[in-house]
C-alpha cells in the first residue's frame, strides 16, 4: 500500500468517529527531532496530584527509561499520553503538530502510539496468532473487517513477529489460546502486538515483570534493536534491565521529574538516593 492510499484510509476511518481533527492527521512532523513533548502536565485525583507540572521531551529514535518509586505517576503519565486520562493542565504533543489532548484513544493509536500495559492485557480467548492478527496495522473499520483476509505479506509479518517474540514453537505453537501462556510469554505477546501496529512511539509499562533472567535479557536485546527506527519509553523497576538497555534515564517522583541523565549519574544523585532509600 502506498502512502497516499494509506492516508486516505486513515481519514475515512476517522470520518466515522465523532471527533473531527482530520487536518492535523497524517505523518508525524519530526522536523525538530522531537517525537513526544509534555509540558506542565498536571493530573489530580480527588485533590491528590498524581502528576505535578511534568515536563518530558523524547527525541525521535530514542530509548528512554523511566524509573521512580511506586505511585510516582509513571503509569498515569502513559494514561495521559494515550488518552485514557485527560490532564487538568498542560500540553501534550506528538511530533510538532499533533495535539494528543484532542484525540480519542483509537485516534491516538492510529496516529502511531502503541502501548503495553502494566498488567498484560491480551485477548485470552483468542489464539496467539489471532492476537497478533488483530493488532496488525491495517484498515480497522467494521465494514472492512467483514471481508478482510490475510495477504501473504501480512502472514509473513505475523510469522516474523512470532519468531521475534519466540511464541512460534512449543505445544500448540501460534494456535494455542493466549490465556494458556505463562506470565512472561503474555508480556511478550503483548510486545508482539505492539510491534504489529508498527508504531512510531512505543510506551512499555513494566515489560519484564514476571520474566526469567534469560527472558529479560532477550527483551533488552529486542528493545535495543528497535530503537532508532522507533522511539521507546520504558517504565521499569528492574535496574539490571535498565542497565542493559543503556539509554537515558528519567527519575519521576511525586508526579514530577526528579533527575535525568545516564544511569550512573542518576544513581549517584543525592536526591534520588534519598527518595529510594528514605522510604
Amino acid at each position: 500500500m502506498n502512502a497516499v492510499t494509506e492516508n486516505r484510509h486513515d481519514q475515512e476511518w476517522l470520518g466515522g468517529t465523532s471527533i473531527g481533527h482530520l487536518k492535523r492527521h497524517g505523518e508525524v512532523d519530526l522536523s525538530h527531532r522531537v517525537i513526544l513533548y509534555l509540558e506542565d502536565i498536571s493530573v489530580s485525583f480527588d485533590g491528590f496530584k498524581a502528576l505535578n507540572n511534568l515536563h518530558l521531551t523524547i527525541d525521535a529514535g530514542e530509548l528512554r527509561c523511566i524509573i521512580g518509586p511506586n505511585g510516582a505517576g509513571k503509569t498515569t503519565m502513559m494514561d495521559v499520553i494515550t488518552g485514557k486520562t485527560r490532564s487538568d493542565a498542560g500540553r501534550c504533543f506528538f511530533g510538532q503538530t499533533i495535539d494528543l489532548s484532542t484525540l480519542s484513544e483509537a485516534e491516538i493509536a492510529h496516529a502511531g502510539i502503541g502501548r503495553k500495559f502494566q498488567k498484560p492485557t491480551i485477548f485470552e480467548n483468542l489464539s496467539v496468532f489471532e492476537n497478533l492478527e488483530l493488532a496488525l496495522k491495517t484498515d480497522k473499520r467494521a465494514r472492512v473487517s467483514l471481508f478482510a483476509w490475510l495477504g501473504d505479506d501480512q502472514r509473513d509479518k505475523i510469522t516474523d513477529t512470532l519468531k521475534q517474540i519466540r511464541l512460534d514453537k512449543g505445544v500448540g505453537g501460534a494456535d494455542r489460546p493466549a490465556g494458556l501462556l505463562s506470565h512472561g510469554q503474555k508480556q511478550w505477546l503483548e510486545i508482539g502486538m505492539l510491534l504489529m501496529q508498527d508504531p512510531k512511539l512505543l510506551l512499555l509499562d513494566e515489560p519484564v515483570a514476571g520474566m526469567t533472567d534469560d527472558e529479560t535479557e532477550r527483551t533488552a536485546e529486542l528493545f535495543k534493536s528497535l530503537a532508532g527506527k522507533h522511539s521507546l519509553v520504558v517504565v521499569e523497576h528492574d535496574m539490571a534491565f535498565i542497565e542493559q538497555l543503556g539509554g537515558k534515564v528519567t527519575v519521576l517522583h511525586e508526579g514530577a521529574v526528579l533527575a535525568e541523565g545516564d544511569l550512573a549519574t542518576v544513581q549517584n544523585d543525592e536526591r534520588v538516593i534519598e527518595v529510594y532509600l528514605g522510604r
Partner: peptide, 9 residues
Amino acid sequence: SRVMFLGYN
C-alpha cells in the same frame, strides 16, 4: 478498552 488501543472503534 484494549481493542480501542489497537485502533478499532
